[in-house]
Simulated scan of single mutants.
Amino acid sequence: MPTTAGTRSAAAPDERRGSASKSPSRAGSPGPSVSSVGGSVDGSGDGDGHAAGGASGEGAGVDGAGAPTVVVDPYKFDDPCSQHYLVDRPAQQVPPPPNESDARGWVTALGGVPSGEQLLALTVQGSGKATVVLKALHVRVLDKGAPLAWNDYAMGVGCGGGVETKSFTVDLDAGRPAVALKGGQRDFPYKVSESDPEVFYVFADAQAHDVSWYLELDWSSGTRSGTVRVDDHGKPFRTSGNVGRPAYDYPLGGSEWGKAAPAG
């Protein structure tokens, strides 16, 4: 399968793989990721808080398109109540859970970290009319430690729903985390262009560790090829296990956080 985590692309810049800080602020970085062609590019955020990740390209030929653009939403909910966050505050100091559209501000203000599972939505689009082949998606772990000893807050109670299209999973607790297929989804490669984007969902699971990580997307178009780093505005994603942590939920119609059964 082309989605193993053990093979690093020669096109990916080594200087982008330094150790990440253990500061909780990693979860509150400004936004989804956008990438462009050239050697390791960091762009500025747009008015919607979208940030730029890195991209690298190979090949001197003029045949083919440049690197695809990847826009990432790291605050996606599988359903309105699926997401949990670890927060280093007592329940009395935590405001009510946000809607998905307000999750970034809520998490940033509290210094929270996605717990148990984090869902990323990746929108990948070609940079021109030429077809770009998306060859593989890899996981890169920068740091892995003991799960955070914070309180676990659920975003809701008694909800349903769920994402059903082009979904993949990542077991961040594994010795060599890799992107795996979810629910019969077909594997890479995929094809995109400027007028024909793809949306991928990545379910990253952590139970026993606090993990800093990012993704790399291998691409080619004609004689050009490269790797796009997929992260949160130049910072790694961060996901922590929540097993056994004090757990709270906010019942529908309630006015305060209440004790819930810990994750197990």
Rank of each mutant, 00 (worst) to 15 (best):
A146P: 03
G158Q: 02
L110I: 04
V179P: 14
L137Y: 07
V192F: 05
L181Q: 14
G158E: 02
G184N: 15
N151M: 05
F168Q: 01
M155C: 01
T165D: 06
L181I: 15
P90A: 09
F168K: 02
P97W: 00
G116T: 02
L119R: 09
V94M: 01
A146L: 06
K135D: 06
D102Y: 11
P96E: 00
V133W: 08
Q93W: 03
P90I: 05
R89C: 05
A154M: 07
L134T: 06
A178T: 12
G175I: 04
K135F: 03
P90G: 10
L110E: 03
K135W: 03
G162R: 11
P97A: 00
A109S: 15
L120S: 11
V94C: 00
A174Y: 08
F168T: 01
R104D: 03
K166H: 13
F168P: 02
R186K: 10
R89I: 05
A130L: 07
P147R: 02
L137N: 05
F168H: 03
V94W: 00
D173I: 15
K191F: 02
P98V: 06
G183N: 12
V133F: 07
P177Y: 11
P189Q: 01
S167V: 01
V132C: 02
V170F: 15
A91F: 08
L142N: 04
G175F: 05
S127K: 09
A180R: 13
P177M: 15
A109T: 12
A121M: 15
N99H: 07
P189N: 01
V163T: 05
V107L: 12
G105E: 04
G162D: 09
V113D: 10
A149G: 06
G111Y: 04
C159M: 09
S115I: 11
A178E: 14
S115M: 14
G111I: 03
K129S: 15
V192C: 04
P95V: 01
F168E: 01
Y153G: 00
P189G: 00
A103V: 08
T169D: 06
G116R: 03
V132Y: 04
D152G: 01
Q92N: 03
M155P: 01
N99G: 10
A146V: 08
K129Y: 14
G160I: 10
V192E: 02
P177D: 15
P98F: 08
G183H: 14
L122N: 13
G156C: 06
P98M: 08
T131R: 09
N99E: 08
G162P: 14
E117Y: 01
P114K: 14
D143Q: 11
V113F: 10
Y190C: 02
P98T: 06
D187N: 07
T108N: 05
R140T: 08
V107M: 11
P177G: 15
D187C: 04
L148N: 09
S101F: 11
L137A: 07
Q93L: 06
V157H: 05
G128F: 10
L122R: 14
G111C: 02
G116D: 03
T165K: 10
G126V: 15
K191N: 03
P96I: 00
S115D: 14
R176N: 13
W106I: 07
P96M: 00
V113L: 12
G111W: 04
A180S: 13
A146Y: 05
L137C: 06
G160F: 11
G162Q: 11
